[in-house]
Structure formats: C-alpha cells, structure tokens
C-alpha cells in the first residue's frame, strides 16, 4: 500500500513547522527521513499517524488518511513514537501483544493467529528470549526493540518509526535496520527517521531530507547524500567513502570553520 503526501503544512501552537512537504513511500521500500534536530521529522510522522492536525493531502492507497476512523487507520498504519514509555511492569510478551489491539474484539484474548504474529515480531526484533521478563527491567536498548516489536505486531501495510535505532548498540542498530528491510521485503511501506547517516545510506532504498520544515533533498542515498547536501542541511563536513555495501559517512567537522 502506497503512502503519498502532498503539500503538507503543519503548525504547532500557531507556529508553522512544516511547509508544503511532499513524499511517497512505495510498498516494499524503506524510506529514510533525515534532517537535523528541529527540521520537522517527528512532526511529519505524527501528522501521518493522525496525532496532530495537518493540511494538505495524505493518502494511504486510495484512502484519505485524515478521513479514516482511528480504528481503521490502526489496521493500516503502525506508528512507533520516539518517546519510549512503558507504564507498568508488563511482561514483554504482553506488551508486544498490545500491538494486536486494533484487530481484537472487545476484551478478547489473543487468538492463536495473533499469538503467531506476536511471536514473529519478537523474533524479528531479537527479543523472543525476553518474552517472559518484565519490560521495565530491561536495558534501554532492549526496551527500544520491544517497543518496536509492538509496532511490528500491528501487522500493517505501512510502518512509521521515529528514530527506532537511537540508543541501540551497533549490533542491534543493524538488527533493527535489517528487520525493517525484511518487513519491506514482505511488501510493506516503511518510513523511518534516522540520525545515523551511514545506517541510513546502507539500509534505506531512498532518503528524504528535511531542513527547517521544507523538503531539502530526496532520492537514492548515493544521489542525495553528498558532501554538499550534508553541509547545506546539517552544517557538517563529512568524510564519505564507499564499499560494496554502499556509502560510509563520517561527520568530521562543522562547515562554519569548526573543522578539527
């Protein structure tokens, strides 16, 4: 299912945050959302998830995203917020099971089919061995993967993840990105915001770069993740190399004379 956004404007408390942003995420594609802090990445994702009001068009397949009832949207689009909140001492398995809420009748327990999807999500995020541990007693990185598994368990055609890899160790950053790529491989459309440039360059099919609430660059990583764009958008000088897996980007200084 294709996610298409055109001409999106969002204001927060009267202050315009996004100006005429447009992007598409095709089924089977991982699109990386890049940009410095305050560029509007999270705002864009929250608008897509229906959490804040926006003007412009947001289409999910043939449906107008803004017009979908919240229960129906929850079966089409999963959203992993940046804030990692775990309110009670829930078991990991139960927590991930919450992802099945949109599919469950009132008060019903998990059916075998739901349990299967939950088990797959646990596996995908490499947290199956934690299923019977209280989520609050895990490390930050484990919690991040558990919460991501919850969004995966929603089993939607579209997944939007806000910085799912932040705070993860290198191995689990790769686990996370590989999981997203696998989900895309199943035909889902994935939009993921990232701060790690190399991670974005090597795991995303395309990247969208925002600056000051406007679309700054969009295209394949090789095409848009250039030294010029990084300087213009992030204000950093980067050392860019490549190997058979793609680009390797290392920010090494600030463009305003802060080079080492």
């Amino acid at each position: 299912m294709r996610l298409a956004v055109e001409n999106l404007d969002v204001s927060l408390s009267g202050r315009p945050v996004l100006h005429g942003v447009g992007l598409t995420v095709e089924p089977g594609e991982v699109v990386g959302l890049l940009g410095p802090n305050g560029a509007g990445k999270s705002t864009l994702m929250r608008a897509l998830a229906g959490q804040i009001a926006a003007s412009g068009t947001m289409r999910l397949g043939a449906d107008d995203l803004a017009a979908l009832p919240s229960a129906a949207r929850a079966r089409l689009l999963a959203y992993l917020p940046q804030s990692r909140i775990i309110g009670w001492r829930l078991m990991v398995g139960d927590l991930v099971g919450l992802g099945r809420l949109p599919w469950r009748g009132f008060g019903a327990r998990l059916r075998p089919h739901d349990a299967e999807i939950v088990a797959r999500a646990l596996d995908l995020m490499d947290v199956a061995h934690l299923a019977h541990r209280p989520a609050t007693e895990l490390s930050g990185g484990e919690q991040a993967r558990v919460l991501a598994a919850r969004a995966v368990a929603q089993d939607t055609p579209v997944l939007i993840a806000d910085e799912p890899a932040s705070g993860l160790d290198p191995a689990h950053q790769i686990t996370m990105m590989r999981a997203l790529a696998r989900l895309a491989g199943e035909g889902r459309a994935i939009l993921v915001s990232l701060h790690d440039l190399t991670l974005a360059a090597r795991w995303c099919d395309r990247v969208v770069m925002l600056k000051d609430g406007r679309l700054a660059a969009e295209g394949a990583p090789e095409a848009v993740m250039t030294a010029e764009n990084l300087a213009a958008i992030y204000g950093v000088a980067a050392h860019i190399t490549r190997d058979e897996g793609g680009l390797i980007l290392a920010p090494i200084g600030l463009t305003d004379g802060g080079a080492p």
């Binding site: 998830a49 959490q51 919240s70 909140i85 309110g87 809420l101 919850r150 929603q154």
Partner: peptide
C-alpha cells in the same frame, strides 16, 4: 475504557496509534 487503558500503558501517542480515540 478497558482497551484504552491497556494501550495507554505505552503513552498517549502509542495508544492513539493503536486506534484508541
């Protein structure tokens, strides 16, 4: 409100994304 308070264990944003009004 039973479903809603379950979803709210993960905060309001996550709850809303789970279809909670």
């Amino acid at each position: 409100s039973a479903r809603a308070i379950d979803a709210l264990s993960l905060g309001e944003e996550a709850a809303a994304s789970l279809g909670i009004h």
